[in-house]
Design a protein around this nucleic acid. Structure first.
Lengths: 157, 157
DNA sequence: CGAAAAAAGTTTACGGGGAAACTTTTTCTA
DNA sequence: TAGAAAAAGTTTCCCCGTAAACTTTTTTCG
């Protein structure tokens, strides 16, 4: 019973140069971000991707489904299913316009608008540094660099 | 036939404050990183997670499967299947030690060692800024901040 | 000691996301 | 203008990853 602590609980793992790998770090960071997301929107049955889609539809009502998909890098097949869920939940409205009956125009239902309004603040504050060990300055830098890396020429700093 | 250019190819989409969302940006960045990965290891039938696992086993041969899983935040069920694949490919060796027959110790086969050696450089250089629009300085900062955010106290800067 | 609890993996069942083939509608072009 | 090509979504099928339940082995402790 007096094992000399041996290796604590876990054994130490050496990660080597992989801690310099963007792909690896992005995955680890995303896990943490998801964690925040689900902790904040606890009760709700909503996935991160779904919220993003609703959000962007709210800002650009009437655009085509494929336009949203391309912008958010969501594959068409996935988009179809995702939108179907949101329509079923009564948040999104689909309309096939007469002038191009191949396409689908998306907009939010009143319930969808209400939904965005309700979670707007939680969502926007969700991603700030308060939840992590980063200073506000560091968080700003991180967001800025990620935008550059991902090729998103977003709004102001 | 003389439509006034209308909206180019795509219509412009306003992303609003979501471009300040870490979760969103991490996803977009990860897509780009995956893109690099698959472009570099083109012919190979290897996923990012698999390479990471092989890599870490190489640096820490003989540790338990669960230890690797916890460190890399891979769920046990997934780890079982992932390791099974790598064993099948002849890259990883499993051993159930006598002193604790619940556990599994992992190490690389000679083929596994050769595999890591072969892709080491490609992999390490893969994630650098040359592939993106970031300056080397910016890339270092990004990596540093991601490490902090993800809670990885890695090696030197 | 011996039963209960814990630990380590595995199995099963299920949902998210993607590739490829397909349907419908529109545009191009000979 | 008719047929070919392109565009927009959808459907089908498959794989990755996860949760929950389960098996086996080890540890705890009354």
């Amino acid at each position: 019973m007096n094992a000399p602590k041996e290796t604590f609980d876990d054994e130490r793992v050496n990660l080597g140069e992989i801690t310099g790998s963007l792909g690896f770090l992005l995955r680890m960071a995303q896990l943490k971000a998801f964690d925040f997301f689900f902790r904040t929107l606890d009760g709700e049955d909503l996935r991160p991707g779904e919220f993003t889609v609703i959000w962007v539809i709210q800002l650009n009502p009437g655009l085509r489904q494929g336009t949203f998909a391309r912008t958010l890098k969501i594959k068409p097949a996935h988009m179809t299913k995702l939108i179907a869920r949101l329509v079923e939940q009564g948040l999104v409205h689909r309309e096939v316009p007469e002038d191009d009956r191949r396409s689908v125009r998306l907009s939010l239902s009143p319930e969808g608008e209400a939904f965005v309004a309700r979670y707007r603040d939680q969502f926007l504050h969700l991603h700030l540094a308060e939840r992590s060990d980063l200073t506000p300055e560091e968080a700003r830098t991180l967001i800025h660099l990620l935008r550059r890396y991902a090729g998103i020429e977003g709004a102001a700093t």
